[in-house]
């Protein structure tokens, strides 16, 4: 140890001599070694690989705890808390024998279609309300109030209006997120720095130009973020929506399983929704990188 240290330090001093000296090979200064970061460093840094490893560690820990809980449960009760491999096996079985993929497809279709429609309404409305204060005064109190109505309370109404149709399910998903989406997008547009809009005005921009070419692109990254957060909420409404006359979709599969106390299927459904949610989130983040490259230009 000691000897090694010593030889290192001597070789170090030797190597710095030519650099500072008169001639010989010019060497660069040694790489700077920043102080070691603690695990809980305030605003510390995390590398790409490191964050991947940490993320995976979190996932493994989650399933590990689940697994431990399963084995701690008395054997007679274990069917109420199946193990991870049982649930995963069940998902595989559902896919192979029960056409689970078409249920998944159906649910994804409902979420995305209803969410797209919600966005088609919320983005223009939020944008216009954010740009024109009188429109906001007209619309916002109503929309703001509607947010407080629990989406689930619309279920009976939708059943009466539309029966156990696909439309009713999507209408519920739509109602569950559209009002929040409008409010969030309004906030996004309102937080566009006023100087950006004013400098466009001093360039002689028309109202149309300001709404479409200044306010919209300025708020766009935050709007996409709001969408990402609200589509997560939409996923949480999925099961409620598909209880409405359970015929197909992930929620329907889960409700059917509930009747026969098939906890493994229910948990499989929950796990599926979780995975789909994570994939949705990732795709939104990728979209942000693609759509707003300037935000990442610094790195």
């Amino acid at each position: 140890m000691m000897a090694e240290n010593k030889s290192e330090s001597t070789s170090n001093t030797e190597s710095t001599v030519p650099g500072t000296g008169t001639g010989g090979t010019l060497e660069k200064a040694p790489l700077y070694k920043p102080p070691k970061e603690r695990f809980l460093e305030v605003r510390g840094s995390v590398g790409r690989n490191e964050s991947l490893i940490l993320g995976l560690a979190g996932v493994v820990a989650f399933f590990g705890i689940w697994e431990i809980c399963h084995y701690l449960t008395p054997e007679s009760q274990q069917k109420f808390l199946p193990s991870v491999e049982q649930v995963v096996g069940k998902i595989y079985g559902l896919i192979r024998d029960k056409g689970y993929f078409s249920d998944i497809g159906k649910s994804v279709y409902r979420i995305y279609l209803s969410f797209t429609v919600a966005c088609l309404i919320a983005v223009p409305l939020g944008l216009l309300m954010g740009c024109f204060i009188k429109l906001r005064a007209l619309i916002n109190p109503t929309v703001g109030g509607l947010r407080y109505l629990p989406a689930a309370s619309f279920v009976p109404l939708l059943l009466v209006y539309f029966g156990p149709t696909d439309f009713a399910k999507m209408a519920l998903l739509f109602l569950g997120c559209v009002f929040f989406l409008i409010a969030l997008i309004l906030d996004n547009v309102l937080s566009v720095p006023k100087e950006l809009i004013e400098s466009a005005q001093t360039m002689g921009a028309s109202r149309r130009h300001i709404v479409l070419k200044v306010a919209l692109p300025a708020a766009a990254p935050q709007i996409l973020d709001s969408m990402r957060n609200m589509i997560a909420v939409s996923w949480t409404y999925l099961v409620i929506a598909e209880i409405v006359a359970a015929t197909d979709g992930i929620g329907a599969v889960m409700m059917r399983a509930a009747r026969f106390l098939h906890v493994d299927i229910i948990m499989g459904g929950i796990l599926t929704i979780g995975i789909l949610g994570v994939l949705t989130d990732i795709s939104f983040r990728l979209a942000a990188r693609f759509l707003f490259p300037y935000q990442y230009a610094r790195h």
Binding site: P193, E195, L196, E198, S199, A200, Q201, T202, M203, G204, V214, P217, A218, A220, F292, Y294, Q295
Partner: peptide, 26 residues
């Protein structure tokens, strides 16, 4: 406001989504 009265603001007002050149062209 009107384009015959151009203003440089006290705060930063470049449009972050446009390149420097596009900003100047705006």
């Amino acid at each position: 406001p009107g384009p015959e009265r151009g203003m440089v603001f006290q705060a930063y007002t470049s449009f972050p989504w446009l390149s420097v050149l596009k900003n100047v062209e705006h």
